[in-house]
């Protein structure tokens, strides 16, 4: 997976996780949704590690983030265009 593919896939997984979390907040006994939530989180966790290895830290509190320098401060920050990807490319 290249940078862009990792960013896209993680955005999709995290969106499903956020949406399912809100759903489970009011449907805490829906076993099917819990299973789906768990499997999405699991895949996202693994992809997060790849993201941080290839693109940069997502959380500051991770010992693996830092080698010789404190990488957390590195550009781009989320509001900078270069931290983002275009959504429509693939559909076209």
């Amino acid at each position: 997976m290249n940078k862009e593919q990792i960013m896209k896939r993680l955005a999709v997984l995290d969106f499903i996780a956020v949406d399912l979390q809100l759903y489970l907040d009011t449907h805490p006994e829906d076993m099917e949704a819990i299973d789906k939530y768990n499997s999405v989180i699991k895949e996202a966790d693994m992809l997060r590690m790849k993201y941080e290895e290839i693109i940069g830290p997502l959380y500051s509190f991770r010992s693996s983030n830092n080698g010789d320098t404190f990488k957390w401060i590195d550009d781009p920050w989320p509001w900078q265009p270069s931290a983002n990807f275009e959504i429509n490319e693939e559909e076209n």
Binding site: L58, Y59, P78
Partner: peptide, 14 residues
């Protein structure tokens, strides 16, 4: 709260 260094949805305005 813990900050995550990415947007919930990508924004790239030209």
């Amino acid at each position: 709260w813990i900050y995550e260094k990415k947007l919930e949805f990508p924004i790239k305005i030209k």
